[in-house]
Simulated assay, not measured.
Amino acid sequence: MTMTGPAVRHPGTAMTADQRAQFERDGYLVVPGVLDADEVAHYTEAIDRVYERHTREGEGLHLRGAVQSCPELAPLIDHPKMFGLVWSILGWNVHIYHSHLDVHPTVSAERPFRFEWHQDGGRQNREIETHPRPRMSVNVAYWLSDVSVPGRGNLKVVPGSHTTDWIAGPPSRNVPWPDPEDAIHVTANAGDVVFFDRRIWHARSENHSPITRKAAYFGYTYRWVRARQELTRELPGLSPVQQQLLGALGATDGDHAWGHAPHGVPLYTVLRETGNLDPGFPPLKP
C-alpha cells in the first residue's frame, strides 16, 4: 500500500534506558524543551482564539477533541521530540482516543471542595479484573504556560502509584479530604512535556497565580480499543440496548462509553430496573 498526502514526519527517537527505568518506577516523565519559544507562542495563540470563541474571559475551558477544536494543534500529536516516548511504550498499533485543550485563569475565590484524585480510563478501572491494572494508555501533556512552581494549576501526582489500584479517599467527593501521602506538584516550564501512565493517581491543582494555565493533552491507546466495525446505516426498530451493543447510541460527547453517566446507558437502566446491579462486583457497580 502506498501512502499519499503530506510527507511523513520523522517518528522521533526511542526512549532511552534511563527514561524507561524512570517511567516504569515513577509512572511519569518530565521532558524539557520539547517546544521552542516560537512553537509555544504559535500554539498559545491558536488556543487563545479557541478560548475566545467558546467562553467568556475569566472562565475556565476544558474542551475535548483538541485537534478537532483547534486544527493548528495537529503537529503536536506526532511531534518528533515527543512521539518516540509513545511508541517506545505502546508500540506502533496506536491511536489517540482522548484529547483536550485547557485554559484555566486565576481562581480568585475559594470553590467548594471536590476530591479530584483519579486514574484515567473510566470504567476500565472497575471492569478489568487484573492486578495491577493494565497500562492500556499513556498521556502527553504539553505545557504552554509556566508551571515551574506550585500554585499555578500544576498536575499533581503520587509518584509510583501506577501499580496501585486504590488510594484512600472520602466517602463522597465533596467531603474535605487531604491529598494522598507522597503527592507532589509536577513543575514544568512552557514548552515542556509531561508524559505519564494513565494509571498514575493524579489531579489538577487550583491556579492561584496571576498566570493563566494553558495546556494540551493527548491520550494514546491501542487501535483495537474501539469497535472493529462501525454501523454504517440506520436500522429501524432497534431497542435501546440493541443500539448500545451496535455502537449506535447517537451523537454524544463520548462519555457514555466511559460510563461516567450510567443513567444514559440503556443496559444499565435495564439491569437497575430488574434488580441485577450488584455493588459487590465492580463491573456491575454504578
Rank of each mutant, 00 (worst) to 15 (best):
P150D: 11
G151W: 04
G151V: 05
R152T: 05
R152C: 14
G153V: 02
G153F: 11
G153W: 07
G153C: 13
G153Y: 06
G153H: 07
N154Q: 06
N154Y: 08
L155W: 06
L155R: 09
L155F: 06
L155N: 08
K156L: 15
K156Y: 13
K156W: 12
V157S: 12
G160D: 08
G160A: 11
G160L: 08
S161G: 08
S161T: 00
S161E: 11
H162K: 04
H162W: 03
T163Y: 05
T164L: 10
D165P: 00
D165M: 02
W166P: 00
W166D: 14
I167E: 13
G169Y: 08
G169R: 04
P170R: 05
P170I: 05
P171K: 13
S172F: 10
S172Y: 12
S172L: 02
R173N: 10
R173A: 14
N174Q: 13
W177E: 05
P178F: 10
D179A: 08
D179I: 01
P180S: 12
E181V: 11
A183K: 02
I184D: 07
H185R: 09
T187R: 13
T187H: 08
A188G: 02
A190N: 01
D192K: 00
V194P: 06
F195V: 00
F196V: 00
F196R: 02
R198Y: 05
R198I: 01
R198D: 08
R198T: 05
R199D: 06
R199F: 07
W201T: 01
W201H: 06
H202W: 12
H202N: 09
A203D: 12
A203G: 03
A203I: 00
R204P: 01
R204M: 09
S205M: 07
E206N: 12
E206C: 04
E206W: 03
N207L: 07
H208G: 10
H208L: 14
S209R: 03
P210V: 07
T212R: 14
A216Y: 10
Y217A: 05
F218R: 02
F218E: 04
G219K: 00
G219T: 04
G219W: 00
Y220T: 01
Y220S: 11
Y220G: 13
T221H: 08
T221Y: 13
T221L: 11
Y222C: 04
Y222A: 14
R223Y: 06
R223V: 02
R223F: 10
R223K: 14
R223D: 15
W224A: 11
W224Y: 14
W224N: 15
V225H: 15
A227G: 10
A227S: 13
A227L: 09
R228P: 07
Q229T: 11
Q229D: 10
E230N: 06
L231D: 03
T232S: 15
R233Q: 09
R233N: 13
E234R: 03
L235D: 12
G237I: 03
G237H: 10
G237M: 04
G237V: 01
G237L: 03
L238D: 13
S239D: 11
P240E: 13
V241A: 11
V241R: 06
V241H: 12
Q242P: 00
Q242V: 02
L245K: 14
L245R: 11
L246N: 09
L246H: 07
A248V: 01
L249D: 10
G250W: 09
G250V: 04
G250P: 09
A251P: 01
D253K: 07
D253Y: 03
D253C: 10
G254H: 03
H256K: 06
A257T: 02
W258R: 13
G259E: 05
G259K: 04
G259M: 03
